[in-house]
Design a binder for these strands. Structure first.
Lengths: 243, 243
DNA sequence: ATGCGCATCATTGTATACATATCGGCGGCC
DNA sequence: GGCCGCCGATATGTATACAATGATGCGCAT
């Protein structure tokens, strides 16, 4: 059905395989799925069938597999050998690792960020923080979560170190998954004014305080999680017969 | 032609599609290419044609593409849209970013490593350091480079944080590429006894000193590089007419 | 002789077809 | 009546065929 729409769309271009770039299409699809996961529109554990995705986005399974693979390397989806893809359900250990990593890297980046930050950066960060507060107020939790992740990633990028910024970006994406599994509904540990306070320290060029504040901020988020191993599926048998 | 050989090889197993796992084969191939790059048997800039690789490893292009994609995400190879894959040639900026990242993460991990390290770990690390020294002495520079990267990665893994350990592992791989481009032949900044000294601090449980030493160690490696943008290909024209 | 344009070729991008393994239900057997 | 095993369905893994694009080399014109 939508298959038809898809075909029409591509065919409508009149040039099959025309195209400035099919790769951009892939980028776009990747972003779509990625956002859906980060915004919790796709919950951890949700299965992602290749056929279904191929149909939805109007490309063949080949392209979808490529994208799923990339998502798997970013640890947003889990690829089980003969079972297909599903949204990753982070374990408690992984959650701890991710937050420890954020603690080290994001805090460590703050001094350099304070040194390099420009007025344009400050303006953009303020805007992001404002939109995040707004989303939170109007109950759009999905949007708020994504904006929060975006904020942290954007911040890291100001450091000028692309490698570390990419890493932080991925950590933030994974954090979003962790929130989906261990977070308390209706309360995402991120206090709404935290980001604004942080911007204040950075504007003052006070990297030290920004670093310390980021540390507390992350600790607060982590502390708001209810990390209890769910142990839902067939756990007892293995444990009982472990010896 | 070689197609036949391939078929024979797989058919030789008697079970077409038999197989403990085809995925393990992929893992193996990934490792093969990865090692070749890290050991500088494939130099930066070297082209990696899909057909050729498919032929060498006896699988079809589909599998090769999957592997190349993964290598691209690990930034060991660069995928140029219609031009295919080649071994990544890191820029000077990337080199700086990678070493800054290593400085932050590897040093930051040392205290935790010192806290958690076991006798088995120490034994293994000593063995790796020994083999590295030995390789260096006998002129097997390729092996020495890989062992050095392995050493740093192994060290990071002791911290117990898989996420950070994976990150360090990738940073070390990229460092190997950086060495290939900017390193001085016959002299890889890594002093042969450095790793042994580091092990000593860790054995003493002195995380602080290990951290400081790691910092100097990495700085020394970075300082040994000749980071001069090569500017080989068609550089002058752009620069001359830049205005 | 040199520079431009065109045709061919080599190589990647995409889709599809086929093989294979797992999951679910059903029937037979104990 | 319940459990084991088989069989069909579904979805993934792999290979191959086809299409499109950029590179290369040749020929022609100036």
């Amino acid at each position: 059905m939508n298959q038809r729409q898809t075909v029409a769309e591509r065919g409508g271009a009149g040039r099959p395989g025309k195209n400035g770039d099919g790769a951009e299409r892939h980028e776009e699809i990747h972003r779509s799925i990625s956002d859906a996961i980060i915004e919790h529109r796709l919950r951890p554990g949700a299965r992602l069938r290749e056929d279904a995705l191929a149909e939805v986005f109007g490309i063949s399974r080949t392209g979808i597999r490529k994208i799923l693979q990339r998502l798997a390397l970013e640890q947003l989806v889990t690829l089980t050998p003969r079972r297909g893809a599903s949204v990753t359900r982070p374990t408690a250990d992984e959650a701890k690792d991710v937050f420890d990593a954020r603690q080290m890297v994001e805090c460590g980046l703050m001094p350099e960020v304070a040194r390099r930050i420009t007025d344009d950066d400050l303006r953009e960060l303020r805007d992001m923080a404002r939109r995040e507060r707004q989303a939170l107020k109007s109950g759009e939790q999905s949007t708020a979560i994504r904006l929060s992740a975006d904020f942290h990633a954007r911040l890291a990028r100001i450091s000028g170190n692309a490698t570390l910024a990419d890493f932080v970006e991925r950590l933030c994406s994974r954090s979003s998954l962790i929130l989906a599994v261990y977070g308390n509904p209706g309360h995402l540990g991120c206090e709404s004014h935290d980001h604004d306070d942080l911007i204040g320290f950075l504007e003052a060029g006070n990297g030290e305080r920004a670093q310390a504040f980021m540390g507390r901020h992350l600790k607060a988020i982590e502390a708001s999680l209810s990390i209890v191993e769910e142990e839902v599926e067939a756990p007892d048998l293995h444990r009982i017969f472990a010896d």
